[in-house]
Amino acid sequence: MMLIRPIQRQDKQALLQLATKTGTGFTSLPNNEQNITDRIERMIATWEGTAPLSDQGYLFALEDTTTKKVVGISGVEVAIGLNEPWYDFHVGTQVHASKELGIYRQMKKLSLSNDHTGHSELCTLFLDPEYRKNKNGQLLSKSRLMFIAAFKEKFSERIIAEMRGVSDQEGESPFWESLGRHFFSINFTEADYLTGIGQKSFIAELMPKHAFYVDFLTEAAKEVIAEVHPSTQPARNILESEGMRYEGYVDIFDAGPTLEAYTKDLRVVRKSQLRKIVITTTESLAQETLLIGNEKYQDFRAIIANPQINENEIYLTQEQTQALSVNEGEQIRIVPLFEKEKK
């Protein structure tokens, strides 16, 4: 069984192992032991209620209960940009017109922005390549939304997700080569690493403060604005299926798109419901796959399964209730894993 649970201190080595597999452009899980240690401690402090708002975040592990191996990670930051500025580029339009000359031209421009300050952020989604099957990616991504649905008061009314932008097999980013390299004497891989260990604002402060025209970039750079890395497309598809949309903001380094939504409008938040648990000794499978999560803040658990349900109850096996850390008669939150079941 695949199980979502809160991160634990003993997961550090598993995260370090996952960090070796992420590749260039995945800034939120750097292969840096101190950074990962600090991140885990910050997450635990959030659950324990001792972290200030600016530091609060949640990190969830995907565990294969058969092998006890952590094979995936996903997170949520509660309020970004409160400790240091949160930078991105807004893709806007500049109009140049002369009625006398009969000239009217619209040109795209990029402007440095802090517009997402204070928003919650979905982040750090990574699944071991060997486990990219059996709806594991859906569980890993959407379980965070189930947690948000259960504890909406912990999060901002708006939520974003920065998507990894385009880079090649050598770790080169067309956008960085056309823009960022003019302001720094480092390559994209190094800039990417510095971002991952918390140096993003320092680097961003050296970026141009005034808007500049997209037409001044190379063709290769223009083509990747708001596009995602091929390995990130499935993650983008999942979030868009849940109601998140690109609204014209991109990452300052690789131009990957930022998806955003009102938290209350996310499908899992809108449509999840509570059911009372009935333990059954004979598992009777339904056609629809459900995302199932408990209502325990410090001991959150989530799985996917195909149990029978009615208007008031859900029928779970002893194994499923043990994985979810719940007992018969308790309330549990459910939602269809997909808007419409995918075969």
Rank of each mutant, 00 (worst) to 15 (best):
A323Y: 04
K264L: 15
Y297R: 05
E283K: 12
L290G: 01
A255M: 13
F300K: 12
Q322F: 00
Y213H: 06
I277S: 07
R275F: 02
N310M: 06
V269A: 03
N306S: 08
Y246R: 07
A302S: 14
Y213A: 07
K264P: 03
T258P: 02
H229F: 00
D251E: 13
M207A: 12
Q298T: 14
I304T: 08
E205N: 15
I314C: 01
R245K: 15
E227I: 09
Q233D: 04
N327S: 15
F300H: 11
V268R: 05
Y297W: 03
A286R: 11
T232P: 01
S231V: 08
L291V: 10
L291Q: 05
D251A: 13
A211F: 08
E283S: 06
P230R: 01
M244D: 04
E288M: 07
E313Q: 09
V214H: 03
L324C: 00
N312P: 01
E295A: 01
A235P: 00
S325C: 03
E288V: 12
I309L: 10
L217F: 01
Q287T: 15
T317M: 10
M244T: 05
Q320F: 04
V326Q: 06
Q273H: 04
N312W: 06
L291C: 06
K276P: 05
P234T: 09
A211G: 14
I252H: 05
F212K: 09
P230D: 00
E223Q: 00
N237M: 08
H210D: 14
V326A: 09
N310H: 09
Q233F: 02
L324V: 01
L266Y: 02
E283Q: 05
S241E: 14
N306M: 07
L266T: 05
F212P: 05
M207R: 10
H210K: 15
G293I: 13
I279R: 06
M207H: 10
E319P: 01
L206I: 01
A204I: 11
D215G: 08
F253E: 08
P257W: 13
L217P: 04
A261Q: 12
